[in-house]
């Protein structure tokens, strides 16, 4: 489990971020988008917010079994 690198603020302690949810499968029904959760063991796509920093929303790819953070992308501003 390492730090989470906010693309804007740089590497920060994980306690500064809040997890929102794992992303639903693309194209799923409204029910599935809200209630179902994709539980991949080693490659989880998630939305987080850097609440104690720039308050930016991030797309984070993590390995929930090892705790490693694989990739972070800033969402706002039409970036992706």
């Amino acid at each position: 489990m390492t730090r989470l690198t906010c693309p804007f603020c740089g590497p920060r302690e994980l306690r500064e971020f809040e997890f929102h949810k794992t992303l639903p499968e693309p194209g799923s029904t409204p029910y599935a988008r809200v209630y179902e959760r994709v539980n991949r063991l080693d490659d989880s796509l998630e939305h987080w917010q850097h609440v104690q920093g720039c308050r930016g929303w991030l797309l984070v790819r993590r390995n929930p079994s090892s705790g490693a953070v694989l990739e972070t992308v800033i969402l706002g501003g039409g970036a992706q």
Binding site: E18, H20, H47, Q49, V51, R55, G56, W57, L75, G76, G77, G78, A79, Q80
Partner: peptide, 16 residues
Amino acid sequence: MLSHFEHYRDTEWSGR
């Protein structure tokens, strides 16, 4: 509420 607004602004309304 603020996080709720910011979430939709940064995802579905990003760059719009």
